[in-house]
Write a protein that binds this DNA or RNA. Sequence first.
DNA 1: GTATGGTTACTCGGATAAGTGGTGTCCGAGTTGTTCTGG
DNA 2: CCAGAACAACTCGGACACCACTTATCCGAGTAACCATAC
Lengths: 139, 139
Amino acid sequence: MKYSNATNYALHTMVHLIRLPQNSTIGVQELAEFQKLSPTYLSKILTKLTKAGLIESTPGAKGGYKISKSPNEISFLDVIIAIEGDSKLFNCSLHHNEGCLIEEVMRQSEENMKSELESQLLIDIVKKMESGAEKTTGN
Amino acid sequence: MKYSNATNYALHTMVHLIRLPQNSTIGVQELAEFQKLSPTYLSKILTKLTKAGLIESTPGAKGGYKISKSPNEISFLDVIIAIEGDSKLFNCSLHHNEGCLIEEVMRQSEENMKSELESQLLIDIVKKMESGAEKTTGN
DNA sequence: GTATGGTTACTCGGATAAGTGGTGTCCGAGTTGTTCTGG
DNA sequence: CCAGAACAACTCGGACACCACTTATCCGAGTAACCATAC
């Protein structure tokens, strides 16, 4: 069990977008270049983020992507669900008479993780980065 | 991101083994039958549990599997690591100047989940099952 | 100068393919208990 | 009755195939800004 790399790219992209001056857009190639991955693949990820309502795209020349919601409404969990989907991590395939006790425990542990991810906002990361090391552009 | 089915099978098998009378062994086919999966595949899973030191096998006729450690020392996390491995869920592939802040958050949320799984013991599930519904064999 | 058409710079989405890991089967090898057989 | 061999019931491990998903590429379509040309 691992997060897909797409989740990694999505999170870094979101942080990058939040750091942008408001209402300015940025193209796929520029986003791809700074993460050292192909623009075509990144666009797939951006499509998912768009469908989740986290970012929005303006087509045509001078087009690109920008944040759709207010930065302090976007949590880690939002981005992760946009990429990974929101299906449960564990599903008991056996058919029990009633609820599976094992599944209950697994679900509880999953909730513990998600509640942490839900409380962590991307804007906090950005603030830390900008206060911590100003000289480095380090996304 | 999902747990593999093998983890599901492993957990149910462990619970089943714990419910067995002490020092009695049970064969693969019997374990496989009650979970409705092929013995050959289940043996792969049992091999992993054996290597993790959770169960032990006695070869030859009248052989089979049994719990290796005391039941109240076995947590959910032990079983999960035995099957899934103990690699981190999230790895930042970008090379930053220093530690990745995103990775830090992800790691923290993972720890929240693991600490829950570590505190939950299989024996607690067994106790609940035996006190709750005695008529049903249903694990 | 204004309108029209073409070019360019983008996003969008489908089709496709390689790579990887989970799932599952097959088979041969090793081990131990049981049974059979010869003395 | 006893010893040793054959057999059966198991686990163990490697090799292999299949399938699903991730990762990644290519290409055509749609859209909007920009530019050139003609009137």
